[in-house]
């Protein structure tokens, strides 16, 4: 016999699991943010509010240099992977041969390969071809790694495009290339912007791949933070972490906003 499910009784167990889940997820971040405002150097006792660690961060040319470097890597990875990833998505969807579907499958491998494997493999590749690790190699690795994400996001959007729209553009006097530029790319713009922001945010705080493929100096910010922590945690790192968090939240918010800016119903989650 089945018992009637009582709606009045609170599902305490479910609530407890949920609270524990969110606690595990966000409490450490809250602690980092809080202690970034600590007036003392202690990482265990909160003494009062102060912005001294933020001032210390902005005074630290080394850290600022790393921040600038990370922003540059992200920008290059974003632009490079968008250009190549969008072109690849168009190619895969439009090609009728076996090459296209094969490329579509191969594309998924970077998404499931453990990043540490990608990182070590990339480092070995660069060494093997005699390319010294530098700012160039880390950018090359990040662009390559990001293309899969862009293409996977864009592919379904390209497939959903009405082929008659591009034909209409050609009918009205466009060459094939002009039709893509004037009609297809604008139709894909929301998805392109959303994936650009996503790539920027992902690459900006990427540690593993950056660690294995970057040169000695400058170091990307996450790598720099990691090496700093090895010599004992400085409260400055809390400030850096909090700033990165704010930046990431802002970017994700922007990504969520993009489709609305275009007045479309589709949201980021649908784009992904």
């Amino acid at each position: 016999m089945r018992r009637a499910f009582s709606r009045r009784r609170k599902p305490w167990f479910a609530i407890a699991v949920t609270v524990a889940f969110f606690g595990m997820l966000y409490l450490p971040i809250v602690v980092v943010a809080l202690f970034s405002l600590n007036s003392q150097k202690s990482l265990t006792v909160f003494k009062g509010f102060s912005l001294r660690w933020y001032r210390a961060f902005f005074a630290d040319h080394d850290l600022i240099g790393s921040l600038g470097f990370s922003l540059r890597i992200s920008a290059v990875a974003m632009i490079g992977s968008i250009v190549l990833g969008v072109a690849l998505a168009l190619g895969i969807v439009r090609s009728r041969g076996k090459l296209g579907s094969a490329a579509g499958l191969v594309l998924l491998i970077p998404l499931i390969t453990p990043e540490i494997v990608t990182g070590v493999a990339s480092a070995m590749l660069f060494k093997g071809v005699g390319l010294p690790l530098s700012s160039g190699t880390v950018m090359l690795a990040e662009v390559t790694f990001s293309i899969s994400y862009v293409t996977v996001i864009l592919r379904s959007r390209v497939a959903a495009l009405n082929p008659e729209v591009e034909e209409a553009a050609m009918d009205l006097g466009c060459s094939r290339f002009q039709a893509v530029r004037l009609v297809t790319l604008p139709a894909l713009l929301p998805a392109i912007l959303a994936s650009a922001i996503l790539i920027f945010a992902m690459v900006f705080d990427d540690f593993v791949l950056a660690y294995f493929t970057t040169g000695v100096t400058p170091q990307p910010l996450p790598v720099r933070i990691y090496s700093a922590i090895r010599f004992g945690v400085q409260p400055t790192i809390n400030a850096v972490g909090t700033l990165m968090l704010i930046g990431s939240i802002a970017l994700i918010g922007l990504a969520l906003l993009v489709p609305r800016l275009f007045g479309r119903r589709e949201s980021l989650s649908q784009l992904l």
Binding site: N162, V165, E167, A168, A169, M170, D171, S175, V183, L189
Partner: peptide
């Protein structure tokens, strides 16, 4: 001749209006 070099125009079944 490619479509853009022909003096004909088409009304498509799906209308193919440019949404942007």
């Amino acid at each position: 001749l490619p479509p853009n070099k022909r003096n004909v125009n088409t009304v498509f079944q799906s209308y193919a209006v440019f949404e942007h």
